[in-house]
Design a binder for these strands. Structure first.
Lengths: 99, 99
DNA sequence: TAGATATATAGATGATTGTCGATGTAATTT
DNA sequence: AAATTACATCGACAATCATCTATATATCTA
């Protein structure tokens, strides 16, 4: 189980967020992901590595191609955290112990 | 409405994530937040600024103290995004247009 | 086996970040 | 008014990051 902050950090980049949206419901090879961006191939590779490190994607080689897909467990975990945040984000009490 | 990546980036730090957890259901002044950490006061101030920039917290001065509270709208927005990700994170199709 | 294709890794660079001590500012207290 | 308290801002510094070009690796194809 990855650190919560690591997961959110991985989500905190526009390119990576777009990659994730591309992968919703699909499995894509790097070349297809690459063709959706204007950044270089190594940059995409770098972002995919970051997403994999955070546990957000899985990769699977098939011949010349490597297919990337989302890792549902990691998204379920992040979703659970944010769901609690959203539910409890309304402040009721006010605390102050300092003087 | 803040950029999605900005919100996740703000969530992607252990100290900021802890601050958020402290603020769940509560409104706290900086001194109380500070006393829960071992980092310096300017560091906490810096993180609160980052959270505020992302729209995740609101602040309200009251005499000497400034109270910070969570901003439910931002959390609802982030939650909605992750909910969709979690729901659609199971890959069904496989695409490849490159050769 | 020699090229071609798909992807990763290495190394460099400029930008951003997390942290700190020092200082500034606003409000309160004495 | 002077000191104190709560918090923010400034400036510095090391670490991390996003990006690139160049190169390496793995697989397929001719």
């Amino acid at each position: 189980m990855k650190e919560q902050a690591e997961i959110f950090k991985a989500l905190g980049d526009p390119v990576r967020l777009e990659i994730i949206k591309l992968l919703l419901g699909k499995e894509l090879c790097v070349c297809d992901i690459l063709s959706a961006f204007k950044v270089s191939q190594p940059t995409i590779s770098h972002h995919l590595k970051a997403l994999k490190y955070a546990g957000l994607v899985n990769d699977q080689r098939e011949g010349k191609w490597i297919y990337y897909s989302l890792a549902p467990e990691a998204f379920a975990q992040a979703n659970a955290v944010l769901q609690e945040f959203a539910a409890k984000s309304v402040a009721k009490e006010r605390g102050r112990t300092c003087e």
